[in-house]
Amino acid sequence: TFVALYDYESRTETDLSFKKGERLQIVNNTEGDWWLAHSLTTGQTGYIPSNYVAP
């Protein structure tokens, strides 16, 4: 799992909003700078900017 370093507000319907400190499970990280992730807090799935999270 990864932890959010910053808050992120989604800009498209495929993005995932999250708050700093939220735990995220990475589903697919082969898309370059945008990873498909599942929030362990909200249960939602969407794309996140990879530079906003850390292991």
Results as ranks from 00 to 15, higher is better:
8 Y>C: 04
44 Q>S: 09
17 S>R: 06
10 S>Q: 07
24 L>R: 00
14 T>W: 15
47 Y>M: 11
4 A>F: 01
40 L>V: 08
21 G>S: 04
32 G>Q: 12
8 Y>V: 02
7 D>K: 03
49 P>V: 01
40 L>D: 06
17 S>D: 05
37 A>Q: 00
42 T>R: 04
2 F>G: 02
55 P>F: 08
41 T>M: 11
47 Y>P: 01
46 G>L: 01
27 V>L: 15
9 E>G: 04
25 Q>H: 13
33 D>C: 13
10 S>W: 03
10 S>G: 15
11 R>S: 13
27 V>T: 08
43 G>C: 10
10 S>R: 08
52 Y>C: 11
25 Q>N: 09
13 E>W: 06
16 L>C: 04
17 S>G: 10
41 T>G: 06
41 T>K: 12
4 A>T: 06
53 V>L: 08
42 T>D: 03
35 W>V: 09
31 E>M: 15
20 K>Q: 10
28 N>D: 15
11 R>I: 12
28 N>I: 11
4 A>C: 08
36 L>F: 12
31 E>K: 13
23 R>L: 15
6 Y>F: 13
8 Y>H: 06
3 V>Y: 10
48 I>F: 03
3 V>W: 06
24 L>C: 01
32 G>E: 12
51 N>Q: 13
50 S>G: 08
24 L>W: 02
16 L>G: 03
44 Q>R: 14
19 K>N: 06
24 L>V: 05
43 G>N: 09
41 T>C: 14
54 A>Y: 10
20 K>G: 03
2 F>C: 09
19 K>I: 07
25 Q>S: 10
54 A>H: 09
21 G>V: 00
55 P>I: 10
36 L>P: 01
27 V>F: 12
43 G>I: 02
35 W>M: 06
5 L>G: 03
30 T>S: 13
34 W>Q: 07
7 D>H: 04
40 L>S: 06
35 W>K: 04
50 S>F: 08
55 P>R: 07
29 N>A: 15
31 E>H: 14
47 Y>E: 03
51 N>Y: 11
37 A>Y: 01
6 Y>C: 14
12 T>P: 02
3 V>G: 02
26 I>C: 05
28 N>S: 14
31 E>V: 12
9 E>K: 08
46 G>A: 02
22 E>Y: 01
44 Q>V: 07
50 S>N: 07
52 Y>D: 04
6 Y>T: 07
51 N>D: 13
1 T>I: 15
52 Y>K: 07
24 L>Y: 01
30 T>P: 10
38 H>N: 08
25 Q>G: 05
9 E>C: 11
20 K>I: 06
40 L>Q: 08
35 W>D: 01
4 A>Q: 01
55 P>M: 10
37 A>E: 00
30 T>D: 13
38 H>K: 15
46 G>C: 02
27 V>P: 05
15 D>L: 06
34 W>F: 11
10 S>Y: 03
20 K>M: 08
48 I>T: 01
